[in-house]
Every structure is written in C-alpha cells, then in structure tokens.
C-alpha cells in the first residue's frame, strides 16, 4: 500500500525528476511531420431525424489551441464529442463524412479505447471520481496497463505538476478528490486527462461552472500546455476564446460559419452573423 509520507522520500535515488511519461510511445512518432491533429471532411451528424452538424470541414493544427464558439445548441459540443467518439453512447446518433486523427480515420477500425487515450476530454462540470486524488490520476494509466508503483507515482506527480496543482494537493493525495474546491477539481480533471499522455485534449466549456479566479488559473494552465498538446476548447465566453486561442471557429445551427486565426476572427469578422455574435447583438 502507498502511504502519503512515502512519496518521494522512500528509497534513495527515487527523487522526483521530470521525465517522459511511460505512456508516450505508440503513435506520437507517427504524428511527426503532420501539421494537423484533426482533419474533418464533410462531416454530417444526425440525432435520429435532427441534423446537428451540417457539412463540417475543418483542419485543426497540431500544438495549437482551437476555440469553438457559438450560441447554445449550435453543435460545437457535439463536434468535440465526435472527435473522441463519446457520441457512440447516444442512441440514434448517425455520422457521415471523414474524421482523421493524424491521418488515421477514427471511425474506421480504430480501437475506441486507444482513440480516447490519444484524445483526452475534460467536461463542463468537474467530474473527479469519488476516489482519492491519487487514484483519480492513476485511473487512466492503470487502465492502459501501467502497474508499477514507481511509474504510477511518477505519472501522478508529473501530471499534477504540469497542471500546477501539485503544491495544493501533495499532502492530501490519499484524500477524496471530491473534497477539493470546484476549480481544483477541474484542474485535477485536466491532470487526469494528461496522465495518459494524450496527443489532443478536448475541453467542453471547462470553466463555465467556475468562478473568475479559477477560470483565470485554468486559462493560464491551457496556455502553458500549448505546443505540447493540441487543445480544442468549446467556450461560451468570447473573451476567453480571444485570450487563449490561436484559431477560432464560429458555429451556427450546426454549420461552421467562419474559421480563422483568432486575431482575424475578432478584429475583422468576414460574416455579418459572426460580427453580430461577437459584438453581443445576439446569441
């Protein structure tokens, strides 16, 4: 059994060193040389009879932060759930078109479990498991076969340090994660997603349930993660999109109205509807 005091000062020579996480082998090598993490071509998505996404074409760049904005019900959350196949859970959901992760079709014969390891997700409402902080982070690596205590300890510490929450939780790794504050819980969820070394991280309105201070911390965190991971974030908060993202896409009724660099998007939107939305005239 792991006990709090043993962490990092157990055997000599087992001090913390930042290192590559054990789960980083596999496809990351293949993705070298490719510019886009996701290539989406003529994607249509139907919930029974309702068409939630209409002919979506997007290329999302590797290592960048891509923001998806638009009014409620415009299909932006649906789109990111398509990217890690969480839509599989919804009955009556039908998809046509082509979605490629670093060139590999994700709706072909790709293993869903491996896809979700490569494409992590953070939800709107912080959803740490009702387990300890440590077990929350270790859940993913354990799922993918990491057993050694030493490696797990390393993953837990690295993930928590990468999300700048280590100092706040290092003394309570064995405490229930649900005792943390909302903002800490959400950063824990990001750490949990990082623990399996994903290539892409999807965030579905990660700050909409949080106060401004926690929101600020998460935004800073995402900026530090830029480059190392490709980040796709759905947000209702346009200032947020403007502050942190490199690329922004504006959605309306299931269609991509505009997809540009964030600067262009907010400085000189091409479409009247985009302009109306970002200046707050509707939505």
């Amino acid at each position: 059994m792991w006990t709090p005091g043993r962490f990092g000062r157990g055997k000599p020579g087992r001090k913390y060193e930042p290192r590559e996480l054990p789960l980083t082998q596999d496809s990351r090598a293949e993705s070298k040389g490719l510019v886009n993490c996701f290539d989406i071509k003529s994607l249509n998505l139907y919930y029974s009879d309702f068409q939630a996404l209409k002919d979506v074409n997007m290329e999302m760049e590797k290592g960048k932060i891509t923001a998806l904005i638009g009014p409620s019900g415009c299909g932006k959350s649906t789109l990111i759930k398509t990217l890690n196949r969480m839509n599989d859970l919804i009955e009556g959901c039908r998809i046509t078109g082509d979605v490629r992760l670093f060139g590999e079709g994700i709706y072909g014969d790709m293993d869903v479990s491996l896809l979700r390891k490569r494409v992590g997700m953070v939800f709107q409402k912080p959803n740490p498991f009702p387990l300890s902080v440590y077990d929350n982070i270790a859940f993913g690596p354990r799922t993918h076969g990491v057993k050694s205590r030493y490696e797990l300890d390393g993953i837990v510490e690295t993930s928590l340090r990468d999300t700048a929450i280590w100092d706040e939780v290092k003394d309570r790794l064995k405490k229930p994660a649900l005792d943390l504050s909302g903002g800490q819980q959400q950063r824990l969820c990001i750490a949990r997603a990082l623990a399996v070394s994903p290539e892409v991280i999807l965030l579905d309105e990660p700050t909409s349930a949080l106060d401004p201070v926690s929101t600020g911390k998460i935004e800073e965190l995402l900026i530090t993660l830029r480059g190392k991971y490709s980040i796709i974030i759905v947000t209702h908060n346009m200032q947020q999109a403007a502050r942190i993202s490199d690329m922004t896409a504006f959605f309306l009724l299931g269609e991509v109205i505009e997809y540009h660099s964030t600067e262009t998007m907010f400085a000189m939107p091409q479409d009247k509807r985009t302009e109306d939305y970002i200046t707050g005239r509707f939505g």
């Binding site: 890690n84 969480m86 859970l89 479990s113 491996l114 896809l115 979700r116 390891k117 992590g120 997700m121 939800f123 409402k125 959803n127 740490p128 498991f129 009702p130 859940f139 993913g140 799922t143 993918h144 969820c189 949990r192 997603a193 399996v196």
Partner: peptide
C-alpha cells in the same frame, strides 16, 4: 458523468 469520465480516459 462519472461513467462518462471513465470512458473518456479510454476505460
């Protein structure tokens, strides 16, 4: 959302 969170990690 507990269940979904676990699935999203590849479980």
């Amino acid at each position: 959302h507990y269940y979904e969170g676990a699935l999203a990690l590849g479980a």
